[in-house]
Every structure is written in C-alpha cells, then in structure tokens.
Simulated assay, not measured.
Amino acid sequence: MAGLAVPTWDPQTALLIGAILFEAIVLYVGYGGLERLVGPRLMELLVGGDSGVGQ
C-alpha cells in the first residue's frame, strides 16, 4: 500500500526545525512585549495627544 510508510527523520533536520520553532516563539513573545511597552507612547507621539490611546 503506497503512502502508509512512516518517514524517517534525520536528527539534524529535527534539530533545525526545533530551533526555528523556538526562535519564532521567542520573537513572537519578545515583539509582543515590546509593542505593549512602547506602542502606546509611540502612538501618542505620532498621532498626537487627542488620540485616546492614553485614556
């Protein structure tokens, strides 16, 4: 039966995929935190005081 064979994994390939996923998670969390920290102040600076961001 074709298509039922389980593919074998190369350990280096699995390590590379794991490293890429870990990097993506770190960047997602890091940029999310940075946006929460700097975002409101930056928007107030760019848009102006009447934007309602700081309220």
Rank of each mutant, 00 (worst) to 15 (best):
L46H: 05
L37H: 10
V29N: 05
I20Q: 01
W9Y: 10
Y28Q: 09
E35P: 12
G33I: 04
Y28F: 09
L27C: 08
L45R: 13
R41V: 02
Y31S: 13
G39L: 01
L34F: 08
G32N: 13
Q12H: 12
E35C: 09
G48D: 00
R36T: 12
A14L: 08
V6H: 11
Q55V: 00
V26I: 10
L34N: 08
R36Y: 13
L45F: 12
F22S: 04
I25F: 11
W9H: 12
V26Q: 08
S51T: 04
Y28H: 13
D50R: 13
F22M: 14
T8V: 08
T13H: 05
A2Y: 01
G52I: 15
L34Q: 13
L42G: 14
R41F: 14
A2F: 00
V29H: 12
Y28T: 14
Y28I: 09
G54M: 15
G54N: 10
P7R: 15
A24W: 13
G30V: 01
L42C: 08
Q12M: 12
V38S: 07
V6T: 12
L46T: 02
I25Y: 14
L34T: 05
D50G: 10
R41Y: 15
Y31E: 07
L34W: 06
G54I: 08
I20Y: 02
L15M: 02
V26E: 09
T13S: 03
D50C: 06
G48A: 07
V6K: 14
A14G: 07
A24Y: 13
A14C: 06
P7H: 07
G48E: 00
E23L: 14
G52A: 15
Y31L: 14
G32P: 15
G3D: 03
Q55H: 05
A14V: 14
G39Q: 02
L27M: 12
Y28D: 06
L45A: 09
E35M: 08
V26N: 10
F22N: 06
E35D: 07
G48I: 06
G33S: 03
Q12L: 13
V53C: 04
I17R: 09
V38Y: 04
I17W: 11
V29L: 07
S51E: 00
S51A: 14
V29P: 11
A14Y: 05
G54Y: 10
L15F: 02
L4D: 07
R36E: 10
P40D: 00
D50Q: 15
